[in-house]
Design a protein around this nucleic acid. Structure first.
Lengths: 359, 359
DNA sequence: TATTCGTGAAGGAACGTTCCTGCACAAGGG
DNA sequence: CCCTTGTGCAGGAACGTTCCTTCACGAATA
């Protein structure tokens, strides 16, 4: 029963019959096409209104050949779908994707990350955005094989092969570079024992960021300190942090790669008797705006879900509407340095007053 | 270009031609229907695989008459769409809706809250869930008029009229009752000057909860203390709280009706020199799990987005699949009393050791 | 008067499936 | 030998649109 019980649904032909014209005329009158005098047009519209006629969306799609529907799939934690509900990153990404897509006239369908084989192919999509694909992601492969344009991580596309070169577009971050940027900053700020809180996950971001941390440590002959969370959830994250703080030689800096409420983390560290940034420098990978309102404000690494969504949708829409455009875009993570990661004596001095703006 | 450039897309007839059979046979072979020997079935499947055939989802929909797509619209803040991206309530609701819908074999489309007139009707939906409708919501009306089953607030459905009685289902909270429950609790805990932080919004929840607070105050001859936030965002909320605390006679309890990070709120109150619950009782309307991990843990009022989604989708699916079921469901808000709203001497005594479990 | 031309509208194919109907053929029973 | 029964498959309608083609007709032009 599409959009209604079939029996009661009024169709184009019903309007035509009542109005005493052909279905062509009805279609033209309603869509503003064809050569019709205003009188006929108005008459048909009147009849349609009276009967409560609504065009069948599916039939239109079949005719027009496109659905104006985009899919969004977040592949992180594929095994336990949608556990990342609480994560600001994904909800911001989903909402931003929806908003941008709508501004281009496309709707967005939230896709399952697991389920019966190929089940996602039953949904009529013009294109998909696969966020955080896993290695050799079958979902990406399925869509490309079905001829559905995909935007995803460059690496995931490359793994698929030649088909990707034609229909695939990518949006990427240099995850490793961003992690190194944070680590360098912490080192500059005087940290010698930087610990990292990470998740056991197969997605690109986790693989690459943890790898970058390990490489960075190896280059300096430092021992990596990684705490892997056994699962998602606030409790696990806090436990992981407490474990770190309780070590015989506790870290002097913590860099979280998993989302956690920054004010809560600060609160937890304090209750443990440590001060930030006095005893411990802190940088959080997070999209929670609360980070900049704590005391001290917390340094954050953001992978810009809103910008990512914007770029992804635009790449997809360009592709769909036949514009050539870029094959992909590399975005830069946003590292905001705040008081939580600057030792008091390491804070940058206030810039000298510019001679051009006296006062 | 549905799902591909039309020219290259391989169709059912193409498979039929290559396999040397009719399209009926191909359809039957692929779908497991009809009377076909295993040999033919396998042959056709082999050909389909070789050609890379994928059925056209839109055509299937048109035939089957349903799209297995559900719409989700959040109508709060209709004017400024999608500002609620940060709100845990909506992201949890959206994700839960998606998960439950998928478990029933339905996909979910995030709908615009504004845009060109009727634009949502171009999306082929089997049903919609309109969360937090505004008064006499035109979106609810449009969908019902188009014959699309709707689940929404009971009040919104009632306003529409008779059509709603046939195709509408509702899921509701007794917002006013929940607010009173919190206020009664705060009064019992000794609060005499309870202030409320609310939003200027047209959605049912805001109207009803603020109304309940005003009534409650009037019944006791108390002066209502409401701070309306001029807009969404962390800064506005914190400013509102600071205004409250800076009053000549500050409140001895704060009840937030808008979502705000509970640990951040606690931090802000402390920086203002007040202790919780010593100087100030605190109850937050929030879905942020961080609330129970702060020190003290914060009392919360939750409107259970996950359960709401579950019920809404099930009502919708029952309706779509012809099962009669309930016309609607009334849910109870979840009020969790924690240390932030109990004065030290008001904390419930530890329960006596049960004689059945000696120790 | 015959020929163009523009206007108003109808007919029907097409989009890619699914599924109902029906036909040919072989095997079995009377 | 004819009638039933069952199997294997083909033809074509239908889903509800859009849009291309055609056509009739009246007015203007040659």
């Amino acid at each position: 029963m599409s959009q209604s019980d079939r029996s009661v649904r009024v169709r184009l032909v019903d309007v035509a019959r009542v109005a005493g014209v052909s279905k062509t005329t009805v279609s033209d009158a309603l869509n503003g096409t064809g050569r019709l005098p205003a009188s006929t047009r108005e008459h048909v519209r009147q009849v349609a209104r009276t009967l409560g006629y609504r065009p069948n969306a599916t039939a239109r799609l079949l005719r027009s050949g496109h659905t104006r529907l985009l899919g969004l799939a977040a592949r992180e934690y594929v095994e336990t779908p949608w556990v990342y509900a609480d994560l600001a990153y994904f909800s911001q990404l989903a909402i931003a994707t929806t908003r941008v897509a709508l501004s281009h006239g496309y709707g967005v369908v939230l896709l399952p990350t697991s389920g019966p084989e190929d089940c996602w192919l039953d949904i009529p999509l013009d294109g998909v955005f696969v966020v955080d694909p896993v290695e050799a992601d079958p979902m990406v492969g399925d869509f490309l094989a079905a001829g559905v344009p995909v935007v995803s991580d460059r690496r995931a596309l490359a793994e698929i092969g030649s088909a990707a070169r034609e229909t695939g577009r990518w949006v990427d971050f240099d995850y490793g570079g961003a992690v190194r940027q944070v680590l360098d900053h912490l080192e500059d700020a005087g940290a010698e024992r930087i610990a990292v809180v990470a998740a056991e996950a197969t997605a690109c971001f986790h693989q690459q960021s943890v790898g970058a941390y390990q490489d960075w440590c190896a280059e300096r002959g430092r021992e990596p300190r990684i705490v892997y969370m056994p699962g998602p959830g606030v409790q696990h994250t806090l436990d992981a942090v407490k474990d770190l703080l309780a070590a015989p030689v506790p870290p002097d800096a913590i860099f979280t790669l998993v989302e956690v409420s920054p004010p809560l983390l600060l609160d937890t560290i304090r209750r443990f008797g440590r001060s930030v940034p006095g005893d411990l420098l802190l940088v959080c990978t997070t999209e929670d705006p609360a980070a900049s309102y704590t005391d001290p404000p917390i340094s954050t690494l953001s992978f810009l879900p809103v910008e990512t969504a914007q770029v992804a949708v635009e790449l997809l829409v360009d592709r769909l509407e036949g514009r050539e455009g870029d094959p992909g875009r590399l975005l830069s993570a946003d590292f905001q340095i705040r008081a939580s990661s600057a030792f008091p004596d390491q804070r940058p001095p206030r810039p000298a007053v510019s001679p051009l703006t006296p006062g």
